[in-house]
């Protein structure tokens, strides 16, 4: 981008640097003012400091949570398995409903660009921008309470991420195998199966395993709106003010997530 051949004088350099510094300073100043404004509005105005009380009171509230409710542990096994299964089935269902979205959302294979491409993009954005709690609410009102609503919520919620990443993977494939199969007279389906699928399958599997790991975390809270699993136990403990029980449930969630993370780490390693 060297447009002018005239070399910059020292004055020019100093002036440019000053200008840059002013812009930077203004930017930081605006950020700082925003921080002050936000603190003023959220922390100072909106907080009921009398309810919170002194630091000792906060310490007292926190100390309620210390301890483990051993009597609860045998009752946790069922919900833990349920949470795990909701995450697994939800991810697989998400992958299945995601296949058309991937196909429509990748620019190089989308069947009819002006309609199918925006359609897939809208579906992805919708799925990613609505929180899993809200999805679960919608599905609970459609199919009733239970694990099924949770599975649907997880599936719809994971569509966005899987489809977006996979569509990018499809857009970045090597076009030569595709051309070779076209040249041999392969149909669109054959191009799909033999030209594109083998190239993107490992990538998609990696994405799905990653999303599965996130879905375990999500499925652990879906019980809050009546979709079963550990979240329901958590909510029940919370409502009966059994705070050591709450800690126990959180530890169970933590353990499940550690297991999921280790599995995902090693299976993604095995894929490569």
């Amino acid at each position: 981008m060297q447009t002018s051949s005239v070399p910059l004088t020292v004055d020019d350099i100093v002036r440019l640097r000053r200008k840059k510094q002013t812009v930077q300073f203004g930017f930081y100043f605006i950020l700082f003012i925003l921080v002050l404004w936000s603190i003023q509005a959220t922390v100072i105005d909106d907080t009921d400091w009398e309810r919170i009380g002194s630091l000792a009171d906060i310490g007292k509230s926190v100390s309620h949570f210390i301890g483990i409710d051993f009597a609860l542990i045998p009752n946790l096994l069922g919900p833990t398995i349920e949470t795990f299964m909701i995450a697994c089935i939800g991810t697989i269902l998400g992958l299945i409903i995601c296949l058309p979205a991937m196909w429509f959302g990748a620019l190089n294979v989308t069947p009819y660009k002006p309609i199918t491409y925006p359609l897939a993009r809208i579906a992805m954005t919708l799925s990613r921008s609505i929180h899993e709690i809200v999805w679960a609410l919608i599905f609970v009102s459609a199919v009733g309470l239970g694990a099924f609503a949770g599975i649907l919520a997880i599936a719809v919620r994971s569509l966005g991420f899987i489809a977006k990443m996979s569509a990018e993977a499809i857009e970045n494939i090597d076009p030569k195998p595709v051309e070779a199969i076209r040249a041999m007279g392969g149909s669109n389906l054959q191009v799909m199966l033999y030209g594109i699928m083998p190239q993107v399958l490992p990538v998609i599997l990696g994405i799905v395993i990653f999303e599965w790991e996130i879905n375990i975390r999500r499925s652990a809270i879906l019980g809050l709106v009546g979709a079963g699993g550990l979240g329901l136990v958590f909510f029940r403990q919370m409502n009966t003010f059994n705070y050591p029980g709450v800690t126990t449930v959180i530890l169970a969630i933590f353990g499940l997530i550690v297991v999921g993370e280790i599995t995902s780490h090693y299976s993604r390693k095995a894929l490569n």
Partner: peptide, 22 residues
């Protein structure tokens, strides 16, 4: 590993309703 909703519930129980727990 603890979901943001669970954090929010915990902070709401400790500090009460409002923007601070959020």
């Amino acid at each position: 590993s603890v979901h943001e909703m669970i954090w929010a519930i915990l902070f709401v129980t400790i500090l009460g309703f409002g923007l601070l727990p959020g």
